[in-house]
């Protein structure tokens, strides 16, 4: 049997809002490591990795590893049936082809059963060692930059140098360049912009995906943007005390 109980149920709602437009169907893997997911978008341009660790739940029981295939739009619909302050319990019996969501509030409870799906998926090894630039900044600022740039162009060039991180785009009406410099706020670390770089790096990415990733903004005050030497982009939002949601995005490359 698998069962988890999340007191702050709104957190799971925010997770679903962050990924449901990027990925249609995905396997949620339940193991001693936690409640996790790895899935690509249908075009295989982006990959999302989610981990919610067992100690973040009020109760977490996983007798054996199971993989629950879910349509994320349907899961989101069910989560919206619960109130924002509800406690959420998710339960699946071994061998069952359904999963049960229970919502509890001081006023009562509600149960929803959702059909599971068989989804073919592969797990991917993620090599963090090739990282050559890391930028941590306020997530709201990153969201604003992606939104502003997508009103001008379709693609953003992200360049990290000793000067800071530059986001640039070009469109029919002209060009846009936004530079964020390192800025460490000791009193409010969540408002800091911190840049760590082993070598300058620059690459371009579709803004449509970047804007999709920023739907995770309500999960965290800060976002960490990493670029590897192979120009793979990783955008990570930590989920307080529990884990993370990471988005990986493949670059646009010269023909």
């Amino acid at each position: 049997m698998f069962e988890l109980r999340l007191v702050q149920g709104s957190l799971l709602k925010k997770v679903l809002e962050a990924i449901k437009d990027l990925v249609n169907d995905a396997n949620f893997d339940c193991s001693a490591t936690g409640f996790s997911l790895q899935a690509m978008d249908p075009s295989h341009v982006a990959l999302v990795a989610l981990l919610l660790r067992p100690d973040g739940f009020e109760h977490y029981r996983c007798d054996r590893n199971i993989s629950m295939g879910m349509n994320l739009n349907n899961m989101s619909k069910i989560l919206k049936c619960g109130g924002n302050d509800d406690i959420i319990t998710i339960r699946a019996d071994d061998g069952s082809d359904t999963v049960t969501f229970m919502f509890e509030s001081p006023n009562g409870s509600a149960n929803f059963e959702m059909n599971l799906m068989d989804i073919d998926s592969e797990h991917h090894g993620i090599d963090e060692s090739k990282c050559c630039a890391v930028v941590r900044m306020p997530s709201s600022e990153f969201q604003r930059i992606c939104k502003v740039l997508s009103s001008i162009g379709d693609t953003v060039v992200i360049s990290v140098t000793n000067e800071g991180v530059q986001f640039s785009t070009r469109g029919d009406i002209g060009t846009a360049n936004i530079v964020c410099r390192q800025n460490i706020n000791v009193d409010k670390p969540e408002e800091s912009t911190v840049i760590e770089m082993s070598q300058p790096v620059s690459s371009q990415f579709p803004l449509r995906y970047m804007n999709s990733f920023t739907k995770a903004t309500p999960l965290s005050n800060t976002v960490t943007i990493s670029l590897t030497s192979e120009l793979l982009l990783a955008v990570e939002y930590t989920i307080a005390e529990m884990g993370y949601i990471r988005f990986y995005l493949a670059p646009k490359i010269e023909d």
């Binding site: 690509m40 341009v45 990959l47 090894g125 023909d255």
Partner: peptide
Amino acid sequence: GSKQSTITRFFSKI
């Protein structure tokens, strides 16, 4: 011009 690469080339299957 530039073309979009796919994510699969960056990850090894487990």
